[in-house]
Simulated assay, not measured.
Amino acid sequence: MNVNKWQFSRQDTKALKGVAILLMLMHHSMAFPDRIPQKYEFAVSSSGLKHLILVGSFGKICVAIFMFLGGLGLAKQIQANKFHFLKKVWGLYRVYWRVFFIFVPLGFLFFSRQPKYTQAFMWNRFARFSFDKFIQNLTGYAATYNGEWWFIRAFIAAILLGTIYYYLTEKIHIVYVETGLVLFISVITVKFLPALIKLDTFSSLASSYLWTQLFMPDTFVCAYLFGIVFGKYDIFASIRSLFSSYSSINRALIGLMLIVSAFYFQEKVFSNLSDMMLIITPVFMTGCILLLDLCKPLCKVMQFFGGLSTNMWLTHTFFCYYFYPFAIVIFWSRNPIVAYLTLLAITVFASVFLDKFYFSIEKLGVKLRKKIKGIKNR
């Protein structure tokens, strides 16, 4: 069996997830000054705050990276005959519910009565229990307990649309054709269809849940499709092979240039337009890959964060937004770097604790099953 030594592996995926989750924490700790507890706003000048918001807003690319990697993984699984749609959806819900059934009860038990500590609506997520809202959040239909949980619904839609896309384009074997097709789909779904439903003839579609979820996916879902293309044609492997003859210094310079260019064009040229993120994301990821290939210790660190990334995604905003005492601990210094590192430390600790807690539960379950089986066999 021939193995491409430049192939994009699961460890590479984990490393880029690590980059993405660090960007996500940066995004949520710096890009929204109205969500920071009052009297604990960052002690920076107005120009300094603008720069912080600029840097933080770029962190939104993390969602496109996660979507992109999800699509790439789907393509690899289908090619290896290891893809099962229901199993993939169940895997997402399983991780989601592991967090849900701990943090939501904690919210109602300890954080239902909080002062109005931000300009944004962060303090009253658990003020009143509603069974309807509980079910809606449990299924991922709504994200009222944690605004950043909207991703669950979007990712399930991406898996469904990505699966359909892969099998519809299975006969296509030209990378340029598929790249153009995904870009065309992005333009249609992000620009044309929203304008179409504003017409009186099609106005009823605006209230159709299936239409908005399946026929009007946002740029992030289109990033999932682009990831499928990269996975299907091993584009990252080709890029690595292309730069393999370059010296380490040149590869480092190219990687830095790609990262800086991605930031500059996304924030300065395109003014953080979400539809351009579809093109910016693979450029940024390529720069990260070139740098991570040159620094194995850094790659290991990113893989560590990547291994915890889903837990970190699902939990971090409870600490910096929704649970008031933790928000004070994070922002008390009024220093953005200290706040970021504090959020990172708390989130990592919580994520590791979650993994160890459920590992212990599963281990206990195995012991109980063996004990029950032994009693039955007597």
Rank of each mutant, 00 (worst) to 15 (best):
L258V: 05
T347G: 03
S57A: 06
V177Q: 08
A262R: 07
H316Y: 08
L181K: 06
I156T: 03
M30D: 09
S261K: 00
W332D: 03
L196F: 14
G147T: 04
F58L: 08
G180H: 03
V229R: 05
F305T: 11
Q38T: 10
G231L: 07
C62K: 02
Y233C: 01
A195E: 12
I235N: 06
F326A: 13
P336C: 06
R113S: 12
A154E: 15
V99M: 10
Y340H: 09
K14H: 00
K133Q: 13
I172Y: 03
G56H: 02
P115M: 07
L16P: 05
C295L: 14
F8H: 09
S333E: 04
C295R: 11
G71N: 01
S247N: 11
M24F: 05
L181C: 01
G287N: 06
P217I: 08
L294D: 01
L161W: 04
R378Y: 03
V283E: 01
I337R: 06
I156L: 13
K50Q: 12
F83W: 13
T169C: 11
L256S: 11
S57R: 12
L54T: 12
L109Q: 06
I164N: 02
C288R: 01
Q77R: 14
A120T: 05
W332E: 09
Q303Y: 01
V366G: 01
I235Q: 11
F323Q: 09
I188V: 15
P37L: 08
Y93V: 03
F326S: 14
E178I: 05
F318N: 14
S309R: 09
K14L: 11
Y117T: 08
G91I: 00
M24H: 07
E178C: 07
R113A: 13
Y224H: 11
S46Y: 05
K88N: 13
L205R: 08
V301I: 15
S247R: 10
D12E: 13
T179A: 09
E178D: 12
F263P: 06
M285V: 15
A327R: 09
L72H: 13
L344V: 12
I259D: 13
T286S: 15
V348F: 01
